Simulated assay, not measured.
Amino acid sequence: MRKRSSFEIFRNVLYALVLREVQGRFGTLRMGAVFTVLEPCLHILGFAVIFGMIRGGTVGGVDYSVFLLVSLAPFLLFRNIALQMMESLEANRALFAYRQILPLDTFIARTLVECALATIVFVIISVSFEWYGMAAGINNVLTWLIILLAGIMFSFGLGCMFAVVTDFAPQIKIFIRLSFLPLYFTSSVFFPPSKLPPQAINYLLWNPFLHLIEFLRLSALPNYKVADGVSLAFLMSASMLSLFIGLALYRTRRHELLRL
């Protein structure tokens, strides 16, 4: 029998973990798959209706619903990656009895599943908006993908940190989950930060999610103007730093994470 390479083992493990995640998320019933995709769709559409009624009109030259879509959908992806990774150790603990499976494999599998689900949701809502005459396309696809990748890297690093820290201090999980509620508003998901007073923006600029959302809007919406102080260098530095710290913490405690 031919000995498999390390890459082949990793590929097979990742494939099996992704299938396991999909089955666990969707369940054995078709309604499980429908609900998994429908829930974030209703989330985004619900906020679009509520905040659209409050604000009304257009933002940055586009319908407010489209403005919210290109802001909220990526933020939900980043949030879900970090929080799902935080829970992956407990959900897959029994699998670590197999020496081929490492905690990092479960992190990557959950990230891939979240990216796939977010893509499906984004396409469904974009097509729905186009059907009703609201242009929801991406103005600069390449730039948008690069910024999105930076956001995924940032969230993956956060997820690694959350998973390692909550492994020995599980009581802080509820605090981490609740912390994403104020991030909804401090990340300027529902409004352009350029409308805020300069004093408020100076504090919000410390939030990397704000930079992510602003550059995603810039690449997706034509004629959109980012707020003063938004920096691509800060965004990329935050993404690389988050990924470095997360992987460093994982490497430091990788043996403790394998306990059954």
Rank of each mutant, 00 (worst) to 15 (best):
Y15L: 09
P197R: 10
P197W: 15
I50P: 00
A82P: 00
A16Q: 09
L95M: 14
G151W: 07
L102S: 10
F78R: 02
K225Y: 12
L158T: 11
G32K: 09
I120A: 13
T58D: 14
G157P: 04
H43I: 14
E39C: 00
T143Y: 09
I146M: 05
P197N: 15
L29I: 04
R251S: 12
G56Y: 11
L117T: 12
L102V: 02
R110V: 04
S71M: 02
L77I: 07
S237G: 15
T28P: 02
K195S: 11
L83Q: 09
A248R: 14
S126Q: 08
P103F: 14
L216I: 10
G159Y: 08
F96C: 07
N139D: 08
S219N: 04
A163S: 15
F7Q: 12
K225G: 11
L68G: 03
F96K: 02
F7H: 08
A233C: 08
Y203N: 07
A238W: 13
I101Y: 01
I81L: 13
E214K: 01
Y203W: 12
V59Q: 01
E114D: 10
E130V: 09
M85E: 09
L205Q: 06
R2N: 14
G27F: 07
G159V: 09
I138L: 04
N12T: 07
F168A: 10
F78P: 00
F190L: 13
E21I: 09
L221W: 03
S179H: 11
F154N: 07
A169P: 00
L216A: 04
R30C: 06
G56H: 07
A136R: 07
C115Q: 12
Q23M: 10
N139L: 05
F51T: 01
A163R: 00
F190H: 06
V230K: 00
N80A: 12
N207G: 09
Y203C: 05
P222I: 05
P198M: 02
L257A: 05
I146N: 01
F107N: 06
M134P: 01
C115S: 12
Y98N: 15
G246M: 02
G46S: 14
A97Y: 11
A16G: 14
F209V: 10
Q199M: 14
T106W: 02
A73L: 14
G61P: 04
H255E: 15
L241H: 01
L258V: 13
L247I: 15
L145D: 03
G60N: 05
L221K: 06
M240Y: 13
S242A: 06
M86C: 02
